[in-house]
Design a protein around this nucleic acid. Structure first.
Lengths: 194, 194
DNA sequence: CGCGACGTTGATTTGCCTCAACGATTGTGG
DNA sequence: CCACAATCGTTGAGGCAAATCAACGTCGCG
C-alpha cells in the first residue's frame, strides 16, 4: 500500500509530522478499477472523494436526450467526486467512470470528518483544494460564455496537456460542449490550416 | 457599524464566542458604494473579498469583442470577489460593479490570513463556503452544456428569485449567455405562451 | 426638453446540430 | 488467427437556435 502520491499532494499545502501522516493513511482505502468501470452512478449516494494515483477517471452527467456532458477529467494526482451528493447527502447527479485501468484512493466523507476533528490543519488543505477548483470552474464557465468551440478546444489542450492524446475524441467533444461530428470537422479544419 | 448580517452568515457554519467575534470584526471594513460604481477593474490586483449587506453587486468579464459576461450576482448576504486574482496575486480578469446603491463589508486577504492564524475554525467556514460555491458553479456549467437558453432562464429565476425584477434584462442575458436581443424575443415568446 | 441607455422587432447570417451513410479500428469468440 | 460485431471517427446535406445588424420606440434623468 503506497500513499506517496497523495502525501505529496497534501504536502503542497500543509506540513504534517509522521504521526499525523499515519493517522491520515489509516482513513484511506486503495482500490484498482478497470477501464470503463463505473465507480459512481446517477442516483447512488456518493460517500467518497477519489484521488487518482494512476490512470484516469471522468465525471459526467446525462441530459434528458441521453447525451453525456463531461464535468471533469481526473488524471493522476487529481481529486474527483460528486461534491453535490457528497455534501448534501442526496442522490448523485453525476456519473464517475474509469477511462483507463486505474488505481485510486477512496476517502470517505465520514473519515474526512474524523480527520478534521483530529487534525484541523486538513480543513485548510481542503479549503485550498476547493478554492483552486472553484477558480478553474469559474474560468471554464466564462470560457463557455465567451469563446467559440475552437478556442475552447485550445484551452482544453492547455488545461489537460497530458490527456490530449490517448483520449477518445468523443470525450473531448463532451467536455468542450460540441457533438462528436462537429468536433471531427473542426479538428480536420484545424489540421488543414496548419 | 453593524456586522449582524455577516455574523449570521458565519454562524451558519461555525460557532464563535464573543471574544472571537470581536477579533473578527476588527478585521472588517464597512463601505458604501453607489449604483454603477466600479469596485474592481480588470488589471487591478484584488486584495479583498466583499460581503454584501445591502444592495447588489455583479462580477463579469469582458471578451475580446467587448461583450460582457456575468459570472455572479451578489444580493444581500452573498460573498463576491475575483478569487483568481485574490489567490494568485495576479491582475484581475474580472470586473466587479455595484448595480444598486449598496453597503458592503471588505475583508482583505491579509486579514483573512491573520484570522486563520488566530481562529483556525475560520478555515472550516471558508472551506464550506468555497465548496458550496463550487457545487453551484459546477451545476451551472453542466446547465450551460446541456440546456437551452429558455431552460437556463428558468434556472436563473430559481437561483436568484429576489432579483428577477428590478434587474435590467441585459444583465440576465449576460448571465445566461445570450444576446439582449435574443433574450427579449425569448421573453416575449414565453409571455405569449402563458 | 433632449440625450443616452435600454428594450423591441425584423431581416439576414452563421455556428453548430441532426441524421444518415460509410470507413477504420478495436475487441471478442470461434 | 481470422471473422465478425461493436465502437469510433469521418464526411455530407440539410435544419435550427441564436447571433448580427439595423431601425425604431420608450423611459429616466441631467
Amino acid at each position: 500500500m503506497n500513499f506517496s502520491s497523495i502525501d505529496q499532494n497534501v504536502a503542497k499545502h500543509i506540513a504534517l509530522n509522521q504521526e499525523e501522516i499515519d493517522f491520515f493513511h489509516g482513513l484511506l482505502q486503495h482500490k484498482k478499477v478497470k477501464r470503463k468501470q463505473m465507480i459512481l452512478q446517477e442516483g447512488d449516494f456518493c460517500k467518497d472523494s477519489f484521488f487518482v494515483v494512476e490512470g484516469c477517471l471522468r465525471s459526467f452527467s446525462i441530459d434528458k436526450n441521453g447525451f453525456e456532458h463531461i464535468l471533469n477529467f481526473a488524471p493522476p494526482n487529481w481529486w474527483i467526486s460528486d461534491l453535490y451528493s457528497l455534501f448534501s447527502q442526496k442522490p448523485c447527479i453525476l456519473n464517475i467512470e474509469s477511462i483507463e485501468n486505474s488505481q485510486i484512493i477512496l476517502f470517505s466523507r465520514e473519515n474526512q470528518e474524523k480527520l478534521f476533528a483530529e487534525i484541523p490543519k486538513f480543513e485548510r488543505f481542503f479549503r485550498i483544494i476547493a478554492e483552486k477548483s472553484l477558480v478553474s470552474h469559474q474560468q471554464r464557465l466564462l470560457d463557455n460564455l465567451s469563446l467559440t468551440a475552437e478556442e475552447r478546444y485550445e484551452n482544453f489542450c492547455k488545461r489537460y496537456p497530458s490527456l490530449i492524446d490517448g483520449l477518445a475524441q468523443k470525450y473531448i467533444a463532451a467536455y468542450i460542449g460540441v457533438t462528436p461530428e462537429f468536433f471531427s470537422k473542426m479538428r480536420s479544419k484545424i489540421l488543414r490550416n496548419s
